[in-house]
């Protein structure tokens, strides 16, 4: 059951990471095209600033959070950890995973609260020749935090139940 949940969580994290990669490519090309169009043809692409800021950037920072967590890519230091006994190390690791779950859970919760509020008011920004809706971008943040929450929660569960998580890389 735990394995199934883990597979599902990782599949979800990987899928939205593909979205982040796409956002990265699009951001590069969009900014490039806008600068060239502005310089050569004096016609910037309307809304570049907003689309890059509120969509590509939000996607490429939030969506891979879970993938990075499952890869053990989030940074930690080892200043006193190795001095602890094995038992204390286990306790510290479990505490780490539990606190991470709580913290990311809180971030995810408040991101959702904000996303609902922004959706209700239909948040947007005015640009030359129209408006760009901002509220959908709030849900991108929620999607990314949700992936990290799922991965962190499963890791916490693993360390409570005693199974050393296999993807954990020591610092």
């Amino acid at each position: 059951m735990r394995r199934l949940a883990r597979c599902a969580a990782e599949a979800y994290a990987r899928a939205i990471t593909a979205g982040a990669c796409l956002a990265l490519v699009l951001a590069t090309l969009h900014i490039f095209a806008d600068a060239v169009a502005t310089k050569l043809f004096l016609s910037p692409i309307n809304g570049t600033h907003q689309i890059v800021t509120f969509y590509y950037m939000v996607a490429l920072f939030f969506l891979p959070l879970g993938y990075a967590e499952s890869q053990g890519a989030h940074i930690s230091a080892d200043l006193g950890f190795s001095l602890l006994s094995r038992r204390l190390q286990r306790i510290a690791t479990t505490a780490n995973h539990l606190l991470l779950t709580g913290y990311v859970g809180l971030l995810c919760w408040y991101a959702t609260v904000k996303a609902i509020q922004q959706t209700e008011v239909g948040a947007y920004e005015t640009i030359a020749g129209g408006q760009i809706p901002l509220w959908p971008s709030r849900w991108i943040a929620v999607m990314g935090l949700l992936a990290m929450l799922a991965i962190a929660a499963l890791k916490a569960l693993d360390s409570i139940l005693g199974a050393e998580s296999d993807t954990e890389t020591p610092a």
């Binding site: 008011v121 239909g122 948040a123 947007y124 920004e125 005015t126 901002l134």
Partner: peptide, 10 residues
């Protein structure tokens, strides 16, 4: 900064 909520004051 909050255009959707302040259309009148905009």
């Amino acid at each position: 900064s909050n255009q959707a909520e302040m259309p009148v004051n905009m």
